[in-house]
Every structure is written in C-alpha cells, then in structure tokens.
C-alpha cells in the first residue's frame, strides 16, 4: 500500500486517481510514499507534512537566489517558471495556479518530492524536484 494522504491518512495504491486529483476524503494534495511499510498515524504524518511544507516554502523563497549563469533552462517550481536565458523568465500561470498533487519520499534523510506520474504507468514523469537539489551544479 504505497501512498498515504498526509492530511487524513487514507491509503492509496500506485495508480489511484486520487494521486492525480487529490485525496477523495479531504482534498489534500500531498501524499507520502510509504512503499510497503505500515501506514503511519496521523500525528506522525502531520509532523512530516509540516516539515515538507517548510522545505517547499524555503525552496520557493530561494527562487530569486538561484545561480542561473551556467544554466540554459533550469526548471524549478514544478515547471511553472523557466529561465530561458540570463534575465529572461517564462511563467506558466496555469501551472503556478494549479495545486499539483505531490508525492513525498523520505530517502536518506532528505525529502524528495515527485509528481504522481513518477509512480503511475502511462504518463512519463518529466520532472523530479529532487534533481533541483543539484541546482548549484547545473
């Protein structure tokens, strides 16, 4: 039972619709990838969720500080902002406005954030936010 809603604890399998649209019980769009582990209780879930949200906020706050001089198209914030060249930004409003469901995986002490398509068949995942942790090298 791989994915758990980080708000209400409901558990969903890999290809569940809810991963694409949000939890059917509480509408939350953040899921924890628990692999084959037992589902966690809501207190623990909420703690992890808060930690993830803090990280996402800190990450978004860093938008203005990203080193982009050696990049061609660093993509961050889930492909809603693209740096086309130094000083030129393309903003996809629709994506910025969408609350894309996210799947959070705790791997080696760091939170990795994926789009649900990384876990379902059919749509190829084009993006894994964890690659942005290497943004300094890009």
């Amino acid at each position: 039972m791989p994915h758990q809603c980080m708000n209400c604890g409901s558990v969903y399998p890999d290809e569940a619709e809810e991963l694409m649209h949000g939890c059917s019980h509480c509408n939350s769009t953040l899921f924890l990838f628990t692999k084959d582990a037992d589902p966690q209780d809501t207190d623990t879930l909420h703690e992890e969720r808060d930690a993830v949200l803090e990280e996402i906020d800190a990450f978004l706050a860093n938008v203005a500080n990203t080193e982009d001089s050696h990049s061609h198209s660093i993509v961050f914030d889930l492909e809603s902002i693209k740096i086309e060249e130094d000083g030129v930004y393309a903003i996809n409003l629709r994506r910025l406005l969408e609350k894309l469901p996210l799947i959070v995986e705790l791997k080696e002490g760091a939170y990795h954030i994926h789009l649900p398509s990384a876990f379902t068949q059919g749509e190829v995942s084009r993006f894994d936010v964890s690659t942005l942790e290497e943004k300094e090298e890009k």
């Binding site: 978004l60 938008v63 203005a64 914030d77 902002i81 130094d86 000083g87 030129v88 930004y89 393309a90 903003i91 910025l96």
Partner: peptide, 29 residues
C-alpha cells in the same frame, strides 16, 4: 514573461535589469 530587456530599454543597465527581472519573477510567484 519577464525580460530584463524591457528594463534596459528604459535606460537601466544590464546587471541591474537582470536583478530586477529576478525580483519581478519572484514577486509574481
């Protein structure tokens, strides 16, 4: 779209314009 050249055409110099473009993008978010 935020393009630093929209600022340089008002006389701003390139580095300052690029910084402004970054801030403007952040402001939009």
């Amino acid at each position: 779209k935020v393009d630093y050249r929209d600022f340089t055409e008002h006389g701003m110099e390139a580095d300052a314009a690029k910084g402004r473009a970054k801030e403007a993008t952040k402001g939009i978010v």
